[in-house]
Structures are given as structure tokens and as C-alpha cells.
């Protein structure tokens, strides 16, 4: 049985806003299935008391003091924006409500 179906891949693509052709979906569903199979093999040997890794280094509590540092100027902040108006980022309205 495959670890991920073509429909699930299509749904992930939709959630991630990635347009995919049917051929690409067919192709990727197979590849992702192989990747997930490999992950499943690793999980077989991981005991319950091993925490899921989210960071390659075993460090915790990396914090900074609550100090203000200089921000970018609005010109700098907006320099990468495709469009701006009134010192604000201008974007197409993607969700109508709210």
C-alpha cells in the first residue's frame, strides 16, 4: 500500500498554492511515496522516548534580551515589494472577506 495517494499530493499542492499538471502529480506521488517509505523505515527503529527532531543541534533556550535595535527604513523595507502605495506593501486582494 502506498504511503501517500495522488489525491493527497494534489491537496498538498493546492494548500501550498503550487500549480501541478496531471503528469507532474503522477510523477510526484510516486516519488513522495518512496521518500515516506524511507522515513517509515527510520521510524521503525526509533523508540518512543526519542523526541522528534526539529533542530540538528541539541540546544535549547536560545534567547535575546528585550532590546530594540534599528529597523529598516520604510524605503529599504519596501524596496523588494512588487508594488507599494502610501508607504505600504500593495498586494492583490486574495481573500475577499475580513
Amino acid at each position: 500500500m502506498s504511503a501517500i495517494s495522488r489525491d493527497e499530493v494534489a491537496n498538498l499542492a493546492r494548500l501550498a498554492r503550487i500549480a501541478m499538471s496531471d503528469a507532474e502529480l503522477d510523477h510526484l506521488a510516486g516519488e513522495m511515496d518512496v521518500i515516506l517509505g524511507a522515513v517509515a523505515r527510520v521510524q521503525e527503529v526509533a523508540s518512543k522516548d526519542v523526541l522528534a527532531t526539529s533542530h540538528p543541534l541539541d540546544v535549547s533556550n536560545v534567547v535575546r534580551e528585550d532590546l530594540v535595535v534599528a529597523s529598516l527604513s520604510p524605503t529599504e523595507a519596501l524596496s523588494g515589494a512588487p508594488a507599494s502605495e502610501d508607504q505600504r506593501f500593495k498586494v492583490p486582494q486574495i481573500l475577499g472577506e475580513e
Partner: peptide, 24 residues
């Protein structure tokens, strides 16, 4: 009411001019 943001040192002042408190 911290002086700086959650993950960066930008100020958190209410009512500042638009996009004057941002960073990478």
C-alpha cells in the same frame, strides 16, 4: 508590552508610521 518584537529587535510602538518597524 515588550519593547521589541517576538523574534527580532524591531520596536513595538503603537501608532508608528507604516512600515517603520520592520526588518528582514
Amino acid at each position: 508590552n515588550t519593547k521589541s518584537k517576538m523574534f527580532c529587535g524591531c520596536a513595538t510602538e503603537f501608532g508608528a508610521k507604516p512600515n517603520t518597524q520592520t526588518c528582514p
